[in-house]
Simulated assay, not measured.
Amino acid sequence: MLDNDLPEMNVVRFVRDMHKNPNNKYVPIVINRSKKLSPEIQSEMDELSKTAVIKEVKTHVQIMDETTLFLHRKAENLPSGSREALEKVHKSDEMIEYKNVLVVDDDIRNIFALTTILERHHMKVIPAENGQDAISILEQNPNIEIVLMDIMMPVMDGYETTRAIRQIPEFKELPIIALTAKAMKGDRELCLEAGASDYITKPVNSAHLLAMMRTWLDK
């Protein structure tokens, strides 16, 4: 378990030095993303992730979740506070029900599929079929609490739309989860650089998406 902002060396060098000992090659590494990495370091991290067991986390609950998994600890054996926090992220609708979510996608079929999932968990879905509509809707509905942003859209793509949203002061901290059908090298880095809070690839795993949304909406 390490932070990505180490004072003496960058996180990539730490992992590479750690792997010089063959016994450490398959030791899982959980990295707390407390600092935005430079594009060069992030690119190196993406390469390392292909050959090492690395998970990046952003919250205390995610740290607990990943370390529990890697240590093969059963959730029911954790202290009650930790156990309840993990159960909330994976099972409870307490953090997401009745929350307003803006779903931005140029394909109405994708909007319908996501709406079906989210409404099943009592979320209120507001659809937008392009980036310009998304910005207008946000300005008219400041009570929107999270955005699901498709990246591959014509005219104004998800990167451009996310950058435009971040230029509006009241939406600087609004959780924006980027959705893309492409899992190309550098996609994640581009999403985060544009201002996205998190990233998930299509086809969307509904349990993974809901857990991610619970984490970002856990106030």
Results as ranks from 00 to 15, higher is better:
I63G: 00
G81C: 05
A128G: 07
K58A: 00
N32Q: 08
M18Q: 01
Y199K: 05
H19I: 01
E87G: 01
P28F: 09
M45S: 02
G131V: 06
I137K: 15
I41D: 09
N23F: 01
T68A: 04
H72C: 00
D198P: 02
R13K: 12
M64N: 13
T68V: 04
I108W: 10
A211K: 14
N10K: 07
H72M: 00
A164L: 12
N77L: 06
V101G: 07
S43N: 08
T115C: 03
L37M: 10
H122Y: 14
H122M: 05
K202A: 02
R73M: 15
I117W: 10
S34H: 06
I111T: 15
S136K: 15
D106R: 08
N32Y: 14
I165C: 01
K219S: 02
D198E: 10
N24I: 09
S43W: 09
A194E: 04
I176M: 07
I146S: 01
K36C: 00
V89S: 07
V103N: 04
M184H: 14
L209W: 14
T51Q: 06
M153A: 02
I117F: 09
V125A: 06
I146E: 06
P175T: 05
V30Q: 10
L2M: 13
S80H: 12
E8H: 07
I151T: 11
H19Y: 09
S34Q: 11
I31N: 02
N205M: 03
R188K: 11
H208N: 03
V204D: 07
L217T: 12
